[in-house]
Design a protein around this nucleic acid. Structure first.
Lengths: 159, 159
DNA sequence: TGAATTTAGTGGTATATGCCACTATATGGG
DNA sequence: CCCATATAGTGGCATATACCACTAAATTCA
């Protein structure tokens, strides 16, 4: 931390957050006309993936690598605006299943077109190949395996 | 979005946020004993970089690729806890310079040792070389050049 | 020099996200 | 079948982060 000018040049965590802020802004700007934020679009898309039966919140949170309560909070504005609904589960009364409403489906589709534009720009600027590899690396970092390995690496290696 | 199971496998923005959440958790767990969050450590470290004269908030926000007002808010708990102080600028009375207090310096150093542990684990699990390359790619995404290119790519390329 | 414009920060409001405490429900033994 | 424990969500609280409107101060320019 002596010659250059940024922590993120040494810290993976700082670097990824910084990049996430930038990318978030960039995608948000493109998706904004739909009235959704990038995070909301991701969430709607993931819910859409589970189809008409919806999905319990727990596995949804896990898929998003997100705290369950955080998911609950994030869902609030979406249920309030009628894009998502929480329906009871047939066999487990603790469970609430999230699924898109008709409006939610429309909104997601609307935002999807805009998202394609954003993703297209990203691939163009970053390179489609590097883009795919980057997502793969990020996928690894997001995996339970990575978390497990990270936490297991208790003894500080010479690194 | 038909065969697999996640938006992030196609969306750079979702992928990076998901990875940022995971990495945030992992680093936070390691750094927690210092009483700081990873984000706060990054911020303190960046302020520390500017030395005893501190730095105006504007360039600090730019360096962090963060909205100026967001930076102001993020600084609140740190000034409240006496780790950072905002001092007036000699030549421009609009400017407030952020710099670490003595306590802030101590805390940053304390967290730095823990951070080394976390970063060491990351490099071990991810591979030191890939780690460096990853930071480099993330650095590019965070750069003004990238943002400019992204925004300039108005016409949707076939992608 | 005085008015118009730009720049640095602040404060309000809203979403994003995590932790903890708590409720309701399900499950696994005796 | 009843209790101890585990599991799914909720709600409160705190930080992270963005946008907008607004103030104060500097800068530009006629």
């Amino acid at each position: 931390m002596s010659e250059t000018d940024g922590v993120w040049q040494h810290c993976a965590n700082s670097a990824i957050r910084r990049a996430a802020r930038q990318l978030g802004q960039l995608y948000d700007d493109v998706i904004a006309p739909s009235g959704l934020k990038g995070t909301q679009f991701s969430l709607l898309s993931q819910i859409a993936f589970y189809g008409t039966n919806g999905t319990p919140l727990k596995p949804l949170a896990e898929a998003l690598v997100m705290d369950l309560s955080a998911l609950g909070h994030t869902l609030k504005p979406l249920t309030r605006d009628g894009l998502v609904e929480l329906i009871p589960d047939d066999t487990d009364r603790r469970v609430r299943r999230a699924r898109l409403t008709a409006l939610g489906v429309r909104k997601q589709e609307e935002a999807l077109a805009l998202w394609r534009e954003a993703q297209g720009r990203f691939d163009t600027v970053f390179g489609a190949e590097r883009s795919a590899e980057m997502r793969s690396l990020l996928g690894f970092i997001s995996s339970p395996d990575f978390a497990k390995a990270f936490r297991a690496t208790k003894p500080k290696p010479g690194a």
